[in-house]
Write a protein that binds this DNA or RNA. Sequence first.
DNA 1: TTTGAATCAGACCAAAATAGTCCTATTACA
DNA 2: TGTAATAGGACTATTTTGGTCTGATTCAAA
Lengths: 135, 135
Amino acid sequence: MLKLSKKAEYALMAAKFMAMKNSSGYSTAKEISESCMIPYQLVAKVLQNMVKSNLAISAKGTNGGFSLAKNPIDISVMDIIKSVESNYKLVDCLQPKSSLEDCSHLDCCKIRDPLIEIQRKIDKVFSETSLVQIL
Amino acid sequence: MLKLSKKAEYALMAAKFMAMKNSSGYSTAKEISESCMIPYQLVAKVLQNMVKSNLAISAKGTNGGFSLAKNPIDISVMDIIKSVESNYKLVDCLQPKSSLEDCSHLDCCKIRDPLIEIQRKIDKVFSETSLVQIL
DNA sequence: TTTGAATCAGACCAAAATAGTCCTATTACA
DNA sequence: TGTAATAGGACTATTTTGGTCTGATTCAAA
Ligand code: SF4
Ligand code: SF4
């Protein structure tokens, strides 16, 4: 239905939160959870995903937390979405070497190429929107 | 996960099928189903949706079927998607008068405006792609 | 006028994806 | 050593999707 997942929304919120807190300190998952009214466990997961994708860095223990790993201008909305959405794609056949396991229609499908082009354009929208544009 | 639904894919396939069959005859749901390897009942539903949205016209009874209601150049991918996806939208709060029933975060959400802008750009991609571009 | 080919309409079901929870481990600071 | 935090996995509940079934209606041809 072309909807952004809650995870993606939460990731954007968290990223914005960290970007706003320009003081170089850490933001904790609890802090973000309460500020944005997001379930704690969920935002914690999302933040962990961002760390894995090298968008954020984390510090354990007392006074620990999360902070952005790069300058907000260098983080795109696409980066954030991809950090939490393992398979972000319009259709199942986008890999150049997609097989019938990806989609049983692959060998008779007559709309694949145009959809790949549309995907390219949508990717562009997300890639060209930087975190600073949502501050 | 920002994926197109099967219904939307099937609608695009069906639209393309009808557009290709430029001879002014009708295409039947069965014909489209077999040609595109789509479950019959499903493509039938999709075609009915297209009729309701005035993208296609239908004729009942023997020799009946479906055919496009307009010139393919005047049908956008957006039209086709919207004919089958009752609530196509990136996030739940897009109506200008969205309420807390749409999203409980509405009054504390700090990413809404930028997402509305992104939605606008994505809409543009779908609206500016016409059916002729996928033939 | 009967038969059959087709759309129309709705309820229904199964499988998958999403959203959220729980529990335990690990790390580091005070 | 206690506490505040991240890390990570298993688990559950809810929603959405994809698909099926049944029956009614319409219309043309036999
Ligand atoms: S139906 Fe066509 S476009 Fe859709 S996933 Fe399969 S091959 Fe790709
Ligand atoms: S979280 Fe914000 S952007 Fe997402 S649906 Fe709610 S109000 Fe809209």
